[in-house]
């Protein structure tokens, strides 16, 4: 890892990170501020009397569980759609900007002709991606907890909420490592963006299908996103720890593999 390159990367990508934090925070803060226990209960009852087809439509968007308390409410509103889609778009943009774009336009040659090995350069790029995703999630967690404690003191089950975000971070680590892997493999920037967008689309759609009906529950095995299972996270600390840390380990493994490939790859820069 090269600290100068890391600082440079973090600085130059700060605007993009802040934009995505702003987008997710807009949703998060509004959703938190809008929480009303009675309305949530009414909403829960309302959904129960809706026709099956409309309920399925709502589920498709990731709103699978209409919690009547704050933690469940936030989990339903934010962690089925918003906190998947925006971080995933962010990952596609950043992962490809860090490697394939610089290989494609040959600007990578400047980094690789400094006295830093390819392993160092690539590890720094991977770390940049992870730090950015961590910051995106961390800022959301921090602000949501702050707003909840101000507006609804004691309502948010902070431990469970952090557990939910721990699993989300693990899942996003795997997804980001896969996007990074694609970025390393493809020297063509356009192709890399296309492939990683396709991967994100696939994971997201499989998760939507899984949410449609109990009968389609087996689709959860086709996407990592299904690991962000609010019910299981809220009821089992063991599940939270295992799913969060195992995805983290898999993600780190794919990152390491990407660095090894980048080190061995023939680069036409």
């Amino acid at each position: 890892m090269n600290k100068h390159l890391l600082i440079f990367n973090l600085k130059t990508n700060l605007t993009m990170l802040l934009s995505f934090i702003a987008i997710t925070l807009t949703y998060s803060t509004l959703a938190t501020a809008m929480f009303d226990e009675e309305t949530s209960l009414l909403m829960h009852q309302f959904v129960n009397i809706l026709p099956e087809a409309i309920v399925n439509m709502v589920r498709l968007m990731g709103f699978t569980r209409f919690g009547t308390e704050l933690t469940g409410y936030l989990a339903s509103y934010l962690y089925g759609f918003i906190m998947f889609i925006f971080p995933m778009i962010f990952i596609v943009m950043l992962a490809n900007k860090l490697i394939s774009k610089q290989v494609d336009d040959t600007s990578m040659s400047y980094l690789l002709t400094t006295p830093n090995s390819r392993v160092k350069v690539c590890t720094t790029q991977a770390l940049t991606l992870f730090i950015n995703i961590f910051t995106l999630i961390f800022m959301n967690v921090l602000i949501i907890i702050a707003i909840s404690e101000i507006a609804f003191p004691g309502h948010l089950m902070i431990g469970r909420f952090i557990g939910l975000n721990f699993v989300l971070l693990g899942v996003l680590t795997v997804i980001s490592s896969m996007a990074f892997f694609i970025s390393v493999l493809n020297s063509d920037y356009g192709k890399a963006v296309g492939l990683s967008s396709g991967l994100m689309g696939y994971l997201f759609i499989m998760n939507m299908i899984k949410n449609l009906s109990v009968d389609l529950d087996f689709f959860k095995y086709t996407t990592f996103l299904s690991l962000v299972d609010k019910d299981r996270i809220f009821h089992s600390t063991l599940y939270t720890l295992i799913s969060g840390s195992s995805t983290m380990v898999i993600g780190i493994g794919i990152y390491i593999m990407s660095v090894i490939i980048f080190n061995k790859k023939s680069l036409t820069i």
Partner: peptide
Amino acid sequence: TEEINKTIGYLPGEIALYKN
């Protein structure tokens, strides 16, 4: 490369710089 690059200066044929 890490060792060699301490003594090398490279001017690429295709100038692609960080435009921002």
